[in-house]
Amino acid sequence: MTALLTEAERLAAALGPLSLSHVHRRIMAEGGQHPRRRAGSGTEFWQYRPLAPGEARGRVDWRRSARSDDLFVREREREEPGRLLLFADGSGSMRFRSSEALAEKGEAATLLLTALAMAARQGDEHVRVAGRPDARALPDLHAALLTSVFSVPETGALRAGDTIIWASDFLDSDDLATVTALARRGVTGVMLHIADPVEADFPFSGHVRFTRAEIGDPEADIGRAEALSDTYAKAWQEHQDRLGTMAADNGWALIRHRTDADPAVTLSAIARHLMSEAG
């Protein structure tokens, strides 16, 4: 886990601070809460500061000022609409890797999301794991991503104006329904599709017995696996198309990542998307 964290730190450092400013600008009109970790007009306490000359007397916080000779103003945290929420699919199919040299799909997802979280923290963004509002510090956040067990995020906790980065292989039929439901509530997001190279390429031949990755999956004993490769390639392409259509219909982005690809490239694609006007 620490190795993953270190790797994520390196990726985040190369990525630079991630700011959702364009998102905020767009959402401002629609309203919404988004703490910016700086003084502003919010509801949460931020800091006391001395009363500046020429400032209205009504702003003085008398309770604090009575404790010393100076006059203090109570400042609240500036809040802006929109949060960045991260979600990693924790289902059994994500616990898969085709060779020891590769990361599991879930690990790859966690690495990407943790690096994004770090970059966004540097950009003073409000980052949380969907469904785990308690995880605030980075290591907690990382652990929460790594130990995710659900295949879809809890929709109730998401509000309009939130941006979700949802890393999954989107193999469950619930996934697509959830995307639609979230989009309908005004949540924008990125579908981060994680795939193992074996899943994309189907490099099998000869006598192969396919075993299941999670309960309920089919199993098959294939005499000549190469004969199945065309069928599989078609099915895989259909899956990709389905995801693309889903993302386009809901105004989300679909970004694909293979576990043998460079995470930095994927990260920069996500960052570009988030910082662009479309995000």
Partner: peptide, 15 residues
């Protein structure tokens, strides 16, 4: 015959 090679493949359910 020689025993087959066993492989996990989550995406098999796409077929």
């Amino acid at each position: 015959p020689p025993p087959p090679r066993a492989v996990r493949l989550p995406t098999l359910k796409l077929i």
